[in-house]
């Protein structure tokens, strides 16, 4: 095993890892926020807006991430949107993730029994207070598992950014492989790396889920 190879390419791989993490965190948090906004607009907005959101959700979910990325990165300049690979990568990540997040939040809203909201209205709680004190904390229960799941999916989708030369982990590994004519070791290590990242995220998700469902467990 050519350990010295990994030493030589260490800095590049490390920086690739950094870019992967950056794109993943900024992209998925951005998608989460946008998705939440969409879910709120869907719930409280007027009907034509609902149709628009529904259409957006269907179209984004019905097309490959790679094509969305290409439209933004290669097609962007044609409508005056010049983005660097990393910018395009993060922006398309946000767009790609938002409808999935929106659907998770939407079903989260629906999972809260109507009676609890009625009870809150009966004692005179304001709608804002109901949203933040009654609905949101409880939404963590049905949404934590699907959110974790989708964060994991996004972890893996970061690899696709290599196609538009975002210098993330897969891109750096491919560079290393083609420059040194070694393939097996770098890619095995790379696989292991993603795998660990996914296992780590899912472990973290379990922890969070256990914490937010604390009150539901019988003593």
């Amino acid at each position: 095993m050519e350990l010295d190879l990994f030493v030589r390419y260490g800095p590049a791989l490390l920086s690739g890892f950094g870019v992967t993490i950056l794109c993943w965190i900024v992209g998925s948090l951005g998608g989460l926020v946008l998705g939440f906004a969409l879910a709120c607009l869907y719930r409280f907005g007027p009907r034509p807006l609902r149709w628009l959101i529904q259409a957006y959700v269907e179209v984004i979910r019905g097309t490959p991430f790679m094509i969305q990325l290409f439209i933004l990165y290669f097609g962007g300049p044609h409508f005056g949107l010049l983005l660097t690979p990393v910018q395009a990568g993060i922006a398309s990540f946000i767009i790609y993730g938002s409808p999935y997040f929106a659907e998770i939040f939407r079903s989260g809203f629906n999972a809260i029994p109507k009676g609890q909201i009625e009870a809150a209205r009966c004692v005179g709680l304001s709608e804002g207070r109901i949203l933040f004190r009654i609905i949101l904390p409880q939404m963590l229960v049905p949404t934590t598992a699907p959110l974790t799941n989708f964060f994991i999916i996004l972890t893996k989708e970061t690899a696709i950014l290599s196609v538009v030369t975002v210098p993330e982990l897969l891109y750096e590994t491919q560079t290393m492989a083609s420059e040194t004519f070694t393939f097996v070791e770098p890619f095995l290590v790379l696989s292991l790396f993603y795998w660990l990242m996914v296992i780590g995220t899912s472990w973290l998700g379990d922890k969070v889920e256990r914490r937010v469902t604390r009150h539901l467990r019988r003593a």
């Binding site: 009870a119 209205r121 005179g124 004190r133 904390p137």
Partner: peptide, 29 residues
């Protein structure tokens, strides 16, 4: 909301808020 403060209601399905303790449920409003 002001009117409803004077009318207490108890439901068939209790409708307690499950993420708050008994005391917090009562103290919230």
């Amino acid at each position: 909301r002001r009117q409803r403060q004077h009318i207490g209601m108890v439901f068939q399905q209790f409708n307690l808020w499950p993420h708050l303790t008994a005391l917090e449920n009562v103290a919230e409003a």
